[in-house]
């Protein structure tokens, strides 16, 4: 159904706006697709085990300035800075997971608190001043393209494939879905529930870090505000893609399609020169519509 909506949107936009199908516009669209996709995956993994992660954006912001600072102020090579940035993301996610599991406190409060800690460190260190002088090759990667395909698209697509393989083919991936589907049953059948929840949070942190580094390459600078507006988007795509908040029902493909739909709508509104405030409004409306549709479907299944 998502695919149909996307196809219809695509046809309408290409009929209405001659600018839509130009190579440059496709490139712009694919480029804005990258960060959102990875961020949506980050949230999808915590949703999969029935958890929420409010700290994705905050952790992303921290990783972005850490990577920027390491490259600009400390003169680290790109690979080392990016590698350490990914480790920070993994570590932050691990901390979220361990705190949630060890204390038994709702993940919402834990990640609300850690989000504030991450943002606090970010602002305390940078005092809101971005790093502008990033190494040339790093920035070049952010703007480079092969016809309409940005190089920036490579990491998210790789992440999507690996994630799909992980969830479908590996034992931890299957466990992850099992824990989300029914934590109690999963535990009774010998799945280490706590360890799987920690794993989901850690991977979520890693994906947030990837998103942050992509955003940094895309912008060409390390802004402390990277991630500040990720919250709604991170939930929107998995939910429009049909992830139930109770866990277990996630799909890499459906989440990716939902991101395509959102990016398409955004692009259409830019082409139509609509007030950008409408994007925020529509995003809220889309989530509510998706929730309503899911509910309708569930009712129909129950009735049948």
């Amino acid at each position: 159904m998502l695919a149909v909506a996307i196809a219809i949107g695509f046809v309408i936009l290409s009929l209405l706006s001659p600018a839509f199908l130009t190579e440059y516009n496709l490139y712009v669209m694919l480029r804005s697709f990258c960060v959102v996709l990875v961020v949506a995956f980050a949230q999808m993994l915590t949703l999969a085990v029935g958890q929420l992660n409010l700290a994705i954006g905050a952790l992303g912001g921290l990783v972005a300035i850490a990577v920027g600072g390491m490259m600009e102020k400390l003169g680290f090579p790109i690979s080392a800075a990016v590698g350490l940035g990914l480790l920070i993301g993994l570590g932050g996610g691990l901390a979220n997971g361990l705190l949630t599991v060890r204390t038994g406190i709702n993940g919402f409060i834990i990640t609300l608190a850690t989000a504030s800690v991450f943002t606090g460190i970010n602002l305390g260190v940078t005092e809101s001043i971005p790093f502008y002088n990033l190494p040339g090759p790093f920035v070049a990667f952010g703007v480079g393209r092969f016809f309409a395909v940005p190089y920036l698209l490579i990491p998210p697509v790789l992440a999507a494939l690996l994630l799909a393989l992980f969830l479908a083919r590996t034992a931890p991936g299957r466990y992850l879905l099992a824990v989300g589907g029914n934590a109690h049953a999963a535990e009774l059948s010998g799945i280490p529930r706590d360890r799987i929840i920690v794993l989901a949070h850690a991977l979520s942190g890693l994906l947030a870090a990837i998103g942050a580094i992509l955003a940094e390459a895309q912008l060409g600078s390390a802004q402390p505000t990277i991630g500040a507006d990720w919250l709604v988007m991170s939930f929107a795509a998995p939910i429009i893609g049909g992830a139930a908040l109770t866990g277990g029902h996630i799909s890499v493909a459906a989440t990716a399609l939902a991101v395509v739909l959102v990016v398409l709508i955004q692009n259409g509104m830019v082409l139509a020169k609509v007030d950008p405030y409408w994007v925020q409004f529509l995003l809220g409306a889309l989530i509510l519509a998706a929730v309503g549709l899911n509910r309708l479907r569930a009712v129909r299944v129950e009735a049948a």
């Binding site: 709604v232 929107a236 405030y277 925020q280 409004f281 529509l282 809220g284 409306a285 989530i287 509510l288």
Partner: peptide
């Protein structure tokens, strides 16, 4: 009415309300 978690509903409505106010 929807039986959906209040977190999701209010996350969406926050976006809806703020967007509407800005428009």
């Amino acid at each position: 009415r929807s039986g959906v978690n209040s977190f999701i509903i209010t996350l969406a409505s926050a976006s809806l309300y703020t967007g509407g106010m800005l428009i």
